[in-house]
């Protein structure tokens, strides 16, 4: 493969976690936010916590930023395929976790609306999904650290 093409793959790998993580956050926060707006039409109080729950999928963008910055140091061309693989796959995990966490948040909002006492438990599925995003994030950092000349790498 040509060197510019390989370099481009490396650049995609650097930006992918943020790009895909942000898409996940957009989809997730939109789903949760819309559900929160709908629920606010039907309840008389507790609006703040509805909006708070709907913002949970924002964290995927933050994880994406951190992974992107960790790989954005000076790197050798040999590291580009590895960066592409790690960045893209981590980004995909962040995208899906953000999207489906938003669905969990919407369900939590819907359940809380009719039964406020289940608020804490109803958020648990969203927290579990968040846990998987954290796994993808942490291991992306560890693997990126092992790439030649990547930040912290050998």
């Amino acid at each position: 493969m040509d060197e510019p093409m390989v370099e481009m793959l490396g650049r995609i790998g650097i930006y992918a976690p943020l790009f895909l993580g942000a898409i996940g956050s957009i989809l997730g926060c939109a789903a949760g936010g819309q559900a929160a707006c709908g629920a606010m039409l039907d309840v008389e109080g507790g609006y703040g916590r509805l909006i708070g729950v709907s913002a949970l999928p924002s964290s995927q963008t933050i994880y994406g930023i951190v992974v992107m910055l960790s790989m954005n140091g000076s790197y050798q061309i040999q590291a580009a395929p590895g960066m592409f693989a790690i960045g893209t796959l981590c980004g995909l995990a962040l995208l899906f976790s953000g999207w489906f966490q938003g669905k969990c948040c919407a369900s939590a909002i819907h359940a809380t609306k009719s039964k406020p006492e289940v608020f804490g438990l109803s958020v648990a599925p969203a927290a579990i999904v968040e846990g998987f995003a954290v796994f993808a994030f942490v291991f992306a950092l560890i693997l990126a650290g092992g790439l030649p000349s990547a930040a912290g790498g050998s």
């Binding site: 819309q34 629920a39 919407a106 609306k113």
Partner: peptide, 13 residues
């Protein structure tokens, strides 16, 4: 089309 707002605005039957 998204139905989150509408569904969440309907009270539980």
């Amino acid at each position: 089309q998204s139905y989150y707002t509408l569904i969440a605005s309907l009270p539980q039957l």
